[in-house]
Nucleic acid binder design. Structure first.
Length: 722
DNA sequence: AATATTCCCGTTTTT
DNA sequence: CGGGAATATT
């Protein structure tokens, strides 16, 4: 071992706490890192990866898997910065699977040049599948069927496996649609996002030789955000490390907020059971938030049952009390938040350090208007991504047709874009004619014939066919070149050439697309058009949700995961909104909603403000709201409640944490008053060794129990009441 | 084929 | 109420 080697190892261990060090140093065997919010997880993961590359295996034998491209990019950058891990594979689950399927297409029984269908493509195909089954898309909305099929795929249930297990007519119908959809996908030589995972999972399960090969290729596997894995990803993870068990999973059950997308919290909760020799490391020290913010968040999440206990703590300053503000209505809430932000901006806080979170996007509107009125710059981090823009998808559709002639979803997307006089009737006839001859639509179009059966449109179709034929050689060219060729030859550029504000952004986006392709191929000399299309299909964000620092950030609680801000506002803490409930009778997963709230709170470094409106303007009408039960779960002594209308917010009781002086007069039946919940009656008093617990039934309905020291209750005599 | 009108529906959305 | 999609109109 050279001295430079040991110096580098020492560097990797520098400035780490004991548990962090332990996680970095662990090499062989399963490792579970339970990482609380702001606990330096990324640092640990990257150092660990570097440490492995330095001491255990060549970097190319290490595989780090993330969920998002952003996470992959960040991890890659940070690992690169340590400059010991060149050649390491750092990518998303989907990218890994796409690559594996491309390489092992024969064994996986997929076409080598398969197209990856995004949600839009999938919807179109699904619509067709529903129609093919003679069903109406009104009764069988593509969206709901999509959800059912996606769930099935996430659970590794193929169309064939799905059909025999249907329990009612609805499921049986979905099974039919599912089968038809799969047939259509195959005809299009396409895979959807879920297929990528499912195919690889099943492949690893069934093809031992390949699994063996991959296990030798990737000797150490790291999976980030393990709490978000679904059944397919879980199987992939297990199969990838079957022999060596060198799996390092990092995550936090308390931050699992994608259950509705198929994520299965059980995967992380039962990790130690699945991998019996697991070493568990808990990262519990928080470097982000103040003591008071952390304490409140911790108190909230303590209400969950399905978790792994963590003792969050911090050496950071105490900080100001987190506040709960109750406004009369949603406009005042928005105005209040804007006013508060305005005040902070006059202080030292930079706008980029401030964020407003909400459960549903529709809440952003009121806040936006209020910020506008206050003249505060802001940005809404929303999901409209670059690669979902129409003009971008049109260009990509041309490329897709070139690469994969079976891709009819793409073909029908571009057949009349730019407008070339091929309408619905022509399309119908064309499909029919092609079907009659037993050739694909593309073969038909690009064949050398007169298209007499298409009447007036025959010339247009022939021209389109010629265009496609002339574009074919572009397949062999480099992505950026092919892209430029398509944009100009198809008339798409011309289409956006007329001067005008609307076309301006389209033109810019097309240029941006060529830029992206140029950048892509710059560090991938071997990259083909197929590779670029795959990249484009799987990279949807393009740095869109970066904190630019120029303005206040508005986003959903989901989007906030992984970020941090000095000052955080969470609005709309109302029953049914957070926790969200679709309708009154069907309750959602309240624990997941609580985690969502926890995630939001723990984004705050210094100042946390929760708010709620007593009346909310929703869908055209104003409705009375009920305070979120989550607010009642916050230790009353640890937050500052105030109604902004009040001149002075009520200060904290100085004696919080102490038992009431008149405790000897407290019995079952004693009347008490709570600053928020009002009048109530003691149901029970339990003297514990350390704490005295009290159950109270409130006049207003709710029943609560507390440690009496923190209950914020005052005893009232009977005659004081009315 | 482009534009007007009606109608429907309404969480979150890593890929 | 308001956006998007399906449908009607020119």
């Amino acid at each position: 071992m050279t001295s430079s080697h040991s110096t580098r190892v020492a560097e990797l261990l520098a400035e780490l706490t004991e548990p962090q060090r332990e996680a970095v140093l662990h090499t062989d065997g399963p490792l579970l890192v339970i990482a609380g919010p702001g606990s330096g997880k990324t640092r640990v993961v990257t150092r660990r990866a570097a440490h492995l590359a330095l001491t255990a295996a060549p970097a190319r034998q290490i595989l780090a898997i993330t969920f998002t491209n952003k996470a992959a990019r960040e991890m890659r950058e940070r690992i690169d910065a340590l400059s010991v891990a060149e050649g390491m594979t750092v990518c998303t689950f989907h990218a890994l699977c796409a690559k594996l399927l491309r390489i092992h297409h024969e064994r996986a029984r997929v076409p080598r040049n398969f197209t990856i269908f995004d949600r839009d493509d999938r919807r179109r195909l699904l619509k067709q599948a529903i129609e093919d089954c003679q069903l109406s898309t009104t009764n069988w909305s593509p969206a709901s069927v999509e959800g059912a099929i996606s769930t099935a795929k996430n659970d590794l249930r193929s169309a064939r496996a799905f059909a025999p297990h249907t329990r009612d007519w609805r499921e049986a119908t979905i099974a039919r649609i599912y089968e038809r959809y799969e047939t259509l996908l195959a005809e299009n030589a396409a895979l959807d996002f879920d297929d990528l995972l499912m195919r690889v999972a099943l492949l690893l399960r069934d093809d031992e030789a390949l699994r063996d090969e991959l296990e030798d290729r990737y000797r150490y596997v790291l999976i980030d955000e393990y709490q978000d894995t679904n059944a397919a990803q879980y199987l992939i993870a297990r199969k990838l490390v079957e022999k060596r068990q060198n799996l390092c999973a990092t995550g936090d059950p308390d931050q699992s907020i994608y259950g509705w997308r198929g994520a299965n919290l059980e995967n992380i909760l039962s990790f130690e059971h699945d991998f019996p020799s697991t070493r568990v490391v808990r990262l519990e020290q928080n470097y982000r938030s103040t003591q008071r913010i952390l304490a409140v968040a911790d108190a909230l999440i303590a209400g969950n049952r399905r978790r792994k206990l963590k003792a969050l703590w911090t050496q950071n300053e105490e900080g100001p009390w987190p506040r709960v503000l109750q406004y009369d209505n949603s406009e005042e809430e928005a105005a209040g938040v804007a006013r508060d932000i305005s005040q902070r901006l006059r202080g030292r806080t930079a706008p980029g350090g401030i964020a407003v979170f909400y459960r549903v996007n529709s809440l952003s509107r009121a806040v936006e208007e209020a910020l506008l009125r206050e003249g505060i710059k802001y940005q809404v981090a929303r999901g409209v991504e670059f690669y979902n823009r129409k003009e971008v998808k049109d260009v990509l559709a041309y490329l897709r047709v070139l690469v994969n002639p079976a891709d009819e979803v793409a073909l029908f997307r571009i057949i009349n874009t730019p407008a070339r006089g091929i309408g619905d009737t022509t399309l119908e006839r064309l499909r029919e004619a092609a079907g009659l001859e037993g050739v694909t639509a593309l073969e038909f179009i690009t064949s050398d014939r007169d298209f007499a059966e298409l009447g007036r449109a025959a010339v247009k179709v022939r021209q389109f066919g010629e265009l496609l034929r002339s574009l074919r050689p572009a397949v062999e060219q480099r992505p950026a070149t092919a892209l430029g060729e398509v944009i100009s030859r198809t008339g798409l550029r011309a289409m956006y050439m007329q001067e005008g504000d609307r076309e301006e952004s389209e033109r810019r986006n097309l240029d941006e697309l060529i830029n992206a392709a140029t950048l892509f191929q710059a560090d991938r000399p071997e990259a083909t058009l197929i590779d670029w299309l795959e990249y484009a299909a799987l990279v949807s964000d393009v740095d869109s949700v970066e904190q630019s620092g120029a303005g206040v950030t508005l986003m959903t609680l989901h989007a906030a995961k992984g970020l941090e801000f000095d000052v955080v506002y969470i609005i709309g803490l109302e029953d049914g909104l957070l926790p969200f409930r679709r309708d009154e009778f069907v309750r959602g997963d309240e624990e997941e909603e609580r985690r969502l709230c926890f995630v939001g709170m723990t984004r705050a470094r210094k100042v946390l403000t929760l708010s709620r409106a007593r009346q909310r303007f929703v869908r055209g009408s104003t409705l009375a709201t009920v305070r979120s039960p989550f607010l009642d779960e916050l230790p009353p002594a640890a937050v500052e409640w105030s109604t902004p209308a009040d001149a002075a917010p009520q200060r904290k009781r100085a004696d919080a944490g102490r038992l009431p002086e008149d405790l000897d007069q407290w019995t079952v039946g004693t009347l008490v008053r709570h600053p928020v919940l009002g009048l109530g009656q003691v149901l029970s008093l339990t003297r514990g060794g350390k704490r005295t617990h009290v159950d109270v039934q409130f006049q207003s309905g709710p029943k609560r129990s507390w440690a009496l020291e923190f209950a914020d209750l005052v005893r009232v005599d009977f005659d004081e009441v009315e």
